[in-house]
Design a protein around this nucleic acid. Sequence first.
DNA 1: CAGTGCTTTACGGTTTCCCGTATAAAATGC
DNA 2: GCATTTTATACGGGAAACCGTAAAGCACTG
Lengths: 222, 222
Amino acid sequence: MMFKSVLIAEDQEMTSISVRKTLEDLNVTKAEYTYYCDDALLQIKKNLQGETPFDLLITDLSFEEDHRKQEIAGGVELIEEVKKIAPNIKILVFSTEKKPALIDELFKKYGINGFVRKARHDAKDLKLALDALAKGKTYLSPDLKQSVKQKNTFEFTNYDITIIYLLSQGTLQKNIPSYLQENDIRPYGLSSVEKRLNMMKEVLEFSKNEQLVAYCKDFGII
Amino acid sequence: MMFKSVLIAEDQEMTSISVRKTLEDLNVTKAEYTYYCDDALLQIKKNLQGETPFDLLITDLSFEEDHRKQEIAGGVELIEEVKKIAPNIKILVFSTEKKPALIDELFKKYGINGFVRKARHDAKDLKLALDALAKGKTYLSPDLKQSVKQKNTFEFTNYDITIIYLLSQGTLQKNIPSYLQENDIRPYGLSSVEKRLNMMKEVLEFSKNEQLVAYCKDFGII
DNA sequence: CAGTGCTTTACGGTTTCCCGTATAAAATGC
DNA sequence: GCATTTTATACGGGAAACCGTAAAGCACTG
């Protein structure tokens, strides 16, 4: 019932130790761990044709950079790569991340099986998640369930996100039309851009572009 | 030689467990732990006149808010309060924080004895720190020693942060002076605000306020 | 193919922001 | 105390953003 072979991708040694201990408590005998994303992918590749290929990956999202140059920068990219070579391996994300947009994307686009947030009751939470995943269910930390569901009061289109992203990069509003035209994004008129910005600001009861940028950063939209 | 009685203030259960385990490995018999700052201060107060008052506090800096309303919001405030009632207790900060200015301030203004960064080798790091502190030395994670000195990232003052925060809230630039004046923040002239904004943008090679907002959001400054 | 409704684009006036310069105030030095 | 440097504030011209409105484009319909 419980997992046979688990890989932990987590750069914080202390956290990694705790995860290992949790697995021990749940009688998971074989648990490997890596401190780098590249190593994690390598391990999975190696064990793919072996006797006991990994059936679960527990991974963080943010990995610290250091002297060892890495191909895979973070957890999201790691998940993407793992899905390519081993689509059947279950994935449990264990991270401090709490942006609804990102978590939602992890489930929908990348097909992760569980998300546990590093927070006050994360040890209990992790055990519950492992239990749920072993039973073929998905798991999401209780405190996140609300926020993911309610999401944003406003649905940003790709068009919206492009505009706000450009603003956050320092692009002048009046220069946005030429960018849009070059990338075949319609409508590209300045008035359309202004109209869209006004609409977003009205819905969210904002008055300035700076607020939109702050908002989108907060929710992981850009 | 080693500590007799240690208190752990850490809201992440997993990390807390690991810290406890580390202390066990070092034969520290009495280790209490709390998930809230308020509880930590209470514990210290209680044990102050007892048989074995705490001789070390290991604390995180950022604590998650939840249903339990807290007086003390974060680690810095906790350290401040602890120093008032128990100036002799040694303090080891264990946090993901890496802003040189803050860490510098913790040592100089608040007189902490050690700082270990939650990162790749934090378990080994923590043991080294505990060892150093037990010997009456101070400790700082190796990878931080350089950055504390060089300080290559731009240091935002409270003044800067206030301005950018106001912008991110939708305040018109021309209305910022009146806000500053009402809150006795000087300089409050519009030109001074503009000058400061220009200076920040120049240093960070930005051209628009939206970039500043995005940047500060990314680094958790606002 | 003209009419209707909707969307996109164009334009102009007003406000805000940007940026250089000039004056005023405060801190520093002799 | 006065001169010098530094810092703060005030002002003004020009650029960008904001906002309403008008014109153009386009699909759909009878």
